[in-house]
Design a protein around this nucleic acid. Structure first.
Lengths: 223, 223
DNA sequence: ACCTGAACACCGTTCAAGT
DNA sequence: ACCTGAACACCGTTCAAGT
């Protein structure tokens, strides 16, 4: 058989994560898939943390592909947030990986942060504020993708539909006098919702917060 | 010795979580602290998931204490977000608990969601949008609190200062031509930052997004 | 009703040994 | 250089048995 490489381990981990969720990525399980003993992986990665960091690094590499410094900061910010959301939609494991892995050690993540800080500095924010906003945007994107069942690891259309029905039923079973909004929401949950519409609203929401704060700072600055 | 109660288990779990982080809350570890065998806990809780859900339920109970239906929706929304942030600051384990526990099963969490949906419906959002915004606000609050080292489990002022210095050094060690913003941010990180200012900015940011989207909807509605 | 003991099927990781 | 075997110190959980 072809011998084990660092890349083969990484690919195996990503496949496992995308198909069955990050919690399925255990050293022992992964070793089983790759037909080696668990300890073989330790030759290629110092420990599990380093493996997950490498996975994040690999997936985040695509996020800062297209930077256009000539554009307005609003446009540049939107491009980077949409790249982030797009990458997460393509790789269902990324949101969870960003939560468990030591992302600050991933170079591609650091590059994306630098790019975001640069955009936000141009918008008039301090570096402190920029750093807060950068993690607000990152976690906002994570939250958005996480909120879509069809963007979760190993989800077939049938499973999505079934989970939706279950969720709808649970909400409709609540006492309507205490939870009128949730019961009503449970009813709307029976018909499928459009992903593009959802993400469009979500990204607008994230960006709107930043733009409003920038406008506020500009007002205070000139006052 | 006094015998084990459901409440004693819950209190032990919360203490452990606040002092050493949720990852320290294992059935075996907790049983050790309570001077019983691991299996004793299974009499009071069906499984670990149920324990963590109960913990979330207990901590979230304070969040919807003061609802003032006579006020403007903006004010009501701010009150609930600030209650959320305040509760998390008081209980360092809550952000992590909300990520790992099955929060939808916690009644107090459901009540807070209902209250938020109600406020957002008044603001002109659909239930779908309201649900998206509610999780945006929740995770935004989690992100904010998580970003403060001094709000993490088991952090003494000394540890905070030391972690800050380490972070500052790591950033300043980056190549300045590639990462000018991060290097600069590393320098600002050497002097302590004000928590109140940070949270004030953060909550404003979260609310600003919602208000901007509400204004946009109002414009489109009358147009 | 409330708790224990023993067992099962998992983890990540170290360390000495093999080729 | 690259991998294995055995061992250690952990997990959550089940199930039969004790009081």
């Amino acid at each position: 058989m072809g011998k084990l490489t660092r890349q083969a381990v990484l690919e195996g981990a990503l496949r496992l994560a995308d198909e069955e969720g990050v919690e399925a990525v255990t050293i022992r399980r992964l070793a089983g898939e790759l037909q080696v003993t668990p300890m073989a992986l330790y030759w290629h990665f110092k420990n599990k943390t380093e493996l997950l960091t490498a996975a994040v690094d690999h997936l985040m590499a695509g996020v800062i592909a297209d930077v256009r410094p000539d554009r307005d900061w609003r446009e540049r910010l939107r491009v980077i947030v949409e790249a982030l959301v797009g990458t997460m939609r393509a790789h269902p494991s990324l949101p969870a990986l960003l939560q468990v892995a030591d992302k600050e050690q991933a170079e591609s993540f650091t590059r994306a942060t630098e790019a975001t800080l640069d955009i936000l500095a141009e918008a008039g924010f301090t570096l402190d504020e920029g750093y807060t906003i950068a993690s607000y945007l990152l976690n906002g994107a994570v939250t958005l993708v996480h909120g879509r069942l069809d963007c979760r690891a190993g989800m077939t259309p049938e499973k999505v539909a079934q989970e939706r029905r279950m969720h709808a039923l649970r909400l409709q079973a609540l006492p309507p006098d205490c939870f009128p909004r949730l019961v009503e929401y449970g009813r709307t949950l029976e018909e499928p919702s459009d992903a593009e519409e959802y993400f469009s609203f979500g990204v607008d929401l994230l960006i709107a917060g930043v733009e409003a704060m920038a406008a506020k700072k500009a007002r205070e600055g000139t006052a």
